[in-house]
Structure formats: C-alpha cells, structure tokens
Design a protein around this nucleic acid. Sequence first.
DNA 1: CGCATGCATTGAACTAGGACAAGAAATAAA
DNA 2: TTTATTTCTTGTCCTAGTTCAATGCATGCG
Lengths: 211, 211
Amino acid sequence: MVGVFNKHFLPLVSKIKTLYSQINKNISRYVSFDQQELEIFNSLLEFKTVPKKTMLLQEGEMCNFEAFVVKGCVRKYYIDDNGFEVILQFAIENAWVSDISFSIYENKPSRVFIETLEDCEFFMFSPESKEELFSNAPQFERAFRILMQRSLAVTQDRLFNTISKTATEKYLEFLEHYPALSQRVAQHYIASYLGISAEFLSKIRTKIAKL
Amino acid sequence: MVGVFNKHFLPLVSKIKTLYSQINKNISRYVSFDQQELEIFNSLLEFKTVPKKTMLLQEGEMCNFEAFVVKGCVRKYYIDDNGFEVILQFAIENAWVSDISFSIYENKPSRVFIETLEDCEFFMFSPESKEELFSNAPQFERAFRILMQRSLAVTQDRLFNTISKTATEKYLEFLEHYPALSQRVAQHYIASYLGISAEFLSKIRTKIAKL
DNA sequence: CGCATGCATTGAACTAGGACAAGAAATAAA
DNA sequence: TTTATTTCTTGTCCTAGTTCAATGCATGCG
C-alpha cells in the first residue's frame, strides 16, 4: 500500500476527480443529481486518450458510443455524392459527439466519420452503459432527453442559417458564435462547415479585412 | 342512463376509441406500454378541432403545446431577415408538431409560426401534462426521448440535403419521400420547404416533365 | 537543412439559382 | 356565371458562389 501513495499517484487521483466533476457539471445542467447517482454515472464511463487525426468512427460502422470531450477537438462529417466532405459538427471541451440519431436506435450503419483534430481526452459512454444507467438511475433519462432537445435546437438553427443567410452572414455568425473555434481549426474546415467553398471563404475574409 | 346510449352517442364513443388507438399506436412505436399507462397518457390529452388557415402559434409567443396530428395538415415556418417565409416542417396524420426545441425548456419566445393548411384534428399535449405523465408513468420519458432523437435525425438529414444537393435533386427526393404531400400542398410551399424560389421550382418541374 | 505536403490567397471564366415582370390557369367567392 | 384572388408558368436579366489554375506560405519530417 505504501507504494500507492507516491508522488505520482496523488496528482493522478486529483486529476481524475477534476475530470469527473467536469462531466458531472455538464450532465447536471438541466437536471440535478445526488452524489450517489453521479457515482453510478461515473462508474459507467470509460476515460480514453486519443491522438490527433484518429478516426473514432468510419462510415458504414455502427456508432457504439457517445463521447464527451474532456479536452481537444473533433469533427464529425460525411462525404456527399460528389465526394465532398461536409462537416456537421465540431466538438470541443464539454461537448458530446456521437452519431446517435442514426446508428444506435435505428440500428443502421453510420453515414458519418468522426475524427480527432487535436490530441483528445474523452469519456466514452456505451449504449449498454446507458441502458444500465437508465435502469439504475432513471432521472438520467430526462437529462439525456434534454441534451437531445438541445442538439435538435442547434441543428434547426443551422438549417435556418444555411437556407436563409448569405455566405458572409454565415461566416460572421460563426465567428461570433464560436470565436474559439475559428482560431483552432483550419479555414477550409470552417468553409466545409458553412457549406461554402474554401476559396470563397478566403475571398470573404479579405473583403471583411478591408472594411 | 338510457339517453346516453342513443344513436349519436355510440358512434362518437367508437370514434374516440379509434382516435386514442391512433395516438397510442404512435407512442408505442419504440417503447411498449400497458393498458393502464396508456390510459393515463390519454387522460392528459386534449382533443381539438381546428379549421384551415388557423395559426396555432405565432412568432413571439410561447409554444405551450405539442400537437399530434390526427387528421389534416399543418406547416411550421419562420420569416427570415428579408421577410421570406421558410417552411421548416409539414406535419400530416400521425406526426407531432411543436416548437419544443426553442420554447418550452429554453423558456424563450418562439421564432416560428405554426398554421393549419387544412381542417385539422389534434391531440394537444401541454408541458404540464407532460410533467405529470412523466412522474406517473416514467416510461414515457424514454418514448419522448426517442421521438426527439428521430426529429434530430430528420433535421440532420435535411441539413445534409440542403447543403449537398442541387434543387432538382432535392425536389426529386422530396417527391420520393413525401409523395402524399406533393399532392396536398401548394407548389410554392414545397419550394419554400426546399429553400428554393417558387419560380425555379416551376422551371424544374417543366424540365422534369420533358424527360 | 532542404524538401514535400498541405493550406491560404487571388484571379478568370462559368453556372445554378434568384429577382422581377407579365400572363395563364385554377380556385374560391359572390 | 362573373369576378376576384391565389397559384403556376415562362422569359429575360442578374449575382452569389463555384471551379479550375497558379502562386506564395507554412509546417512538418527525413
């Protein structure tokens, strides 16, 4: 036992506590949980470190996880009929990423790719763990329903923008909405997210810079 | 009691039973419920008849319902910065319509309009009833989470199409996906749903017809 | 250190789809 | 049946955004 409490172990324990409190804060945002419920939740998570440029999910696979981003940045995208990548989501710290809508309940293979853009730390949550969580602590069902609802709101908002705004407006709104991201990811990824060509985004940027 | 079982009443009872079984079939699609649970659910619904061209929700109001379409057709739309209507959803028989994602949990006034396009019959479900349902029959939490998940999948799919497909492709896919709707609603509404101008849709249609 | 591969910028030519206007058809209303 | 209102079609002109190339700039990497 003596060896356990060495100078390496103590900071590690402390780090893990911080990580759990990070995800617990996120899941408690709309529903409050007691200590015991959170412990059940935490015991079902798998902590995972993943280097940059790693594929978490490939088209055609089953998406058997929901990932909570503790640290890092990932993109979720699909490839359209003309072979173009279209980015559906960037997920950074404290965001969830998964292809839940298609894969898990529909039991269909995914159409999307999920790739890390930076070295990442995740909590991975499997469908089985989710079921177990819901049966042991049913309150979580509600928390995940609300998360789902928020994703829907975000997606609906994006649809709104995609249909109704010009490329310049979309870009400005992106900058306003995700100032951190515009520093962290390559321009052409942002273009792909906005649904415009990388060249045109570049032209927009020079035009904006001149004002 | 004798008067109750007259020739008018019996068909009415039978009609209401049919209506309940219609919505019960819908809600049981992914989660199964026993008779008692369904009765609780049904007791919390309000049946409502609404003439065509009626606004169920106006921009700026709080959306305090989720409506299950028993019969008829509605459109949900917003008006963009240039004053253009953009249709987000058509809902026909057995679909749910609401502005749940923005209004109810976020407690923000809605940005959308919901209008009947035909004479309609609905089951209206209020947020209060929903809370009551969840506390009396928690299994419903899951059913509504899955409904939400499906809406997300549909919206994501639309985003996909909006970004990646040409107007012609979108229209053809619409015809394939909603053959009934294309007969029931005006062309310019379909154009608005597809995010293209009514004139251009007309041109697409004549081009297609010539093939 | 030099080299390669990816990334951003710029320009010129092109196109999908929009805006506007004016008629034709269809539906509703009276 | 006539009139009014909404919906659909067609044509012309116009623009936001694309495609294709070429060039300069970084950033990793042996």
